[in-house]
Amino acid sequence: MYKIISADFLAPDIKRFIISAPKIARKRKAGQFVIVRTTEHGERIPLTIADSNSTEGTITIIVQGIGKSTKEINSFNSGDYFTDVVGPLGHPSHIENFGTAVSIGGGVGAAISFPTAVALKEAGNHTISIIGAKTKELVILEKEMRDVCDEVYVTTDDGSYGEHGFVTTKLKNLIDSGTKIDFILAIGPLPMMRAVAELTRPYGIKTVVSLNPVMVDGTGMCGGCRATVDNKTVFVCVDGPEFDAHLVDFDTLMKRNNTYRDFEKTALEHFSCHTHQMFDAAVKEQN
């Protein structure tokens, strides 16, 4: 059992958890993830380690509630427990002093790119962060990024905050205005990562993405997380999760991520129905 030390919402449906996991806290490096299981009936889902504190023995994860498991996690509070937390898994990000490094985070991707942005800064890069969100209230980690990065830009799809447009709009502006970019890390929904890859391909800018296939064990045992990179099959959990964006077959991965779409709907309905029942029972008890 892994205790939740603190839990707070950063935005609607996006929650930050600090969890007691001393061994993971000591070992983890930027770019690695954990696999958690909420309860004895839970599935194993991967979440990036956004931060850690080795003296306190804690790790931070930031979770966007999109389906049954992540919504269940977001109903957890400080003092609650995860049944299982295993990690750190995956290869750490490859960090060096590239020169100018841009980290791009779309949605909850901002959280996933944060630890790598910190590491890139520590390695001596001039760091630029682009945070993208649908709308103002979904912008996360802006302050934290400003504390670390040399330049921070925010884009919103609806223009309610920062610059109007997508992260790629801003990236293109930077490139067009002559910013010399040596390295890009893009993390977010697959269509966003693909758009960044297509944008930077003609310029030959080294671009890395962190892939998010459906995982089970996270140790290379099942092959469920496979993706095609450079026309070869890779297991993202052990060979990645970061890969050269220009070699990734995004199309196949997007399709594979739809494998359980109908189940995900059922699970969510089952969960909402269950939480309603719990809520009703609690109300009854009070009356």
Binding site: H41, K68, V216, C222, G223
Partner: peptide, 24 residues
């Protein structure tokens, strides 16, 4: 599927009892 994935989903994660268990 690999046999490992299919069997792990069913045996370890109890997918045959979805949605009582979360793994599909």
């Amino acid at each position: 599927y690999s046999a490992n994935e299919f069997l792990t989903r069913v045996n370890l994660m109890k997918a045959y009892r979805f949605p009582e268990f979360d793994t599909p």
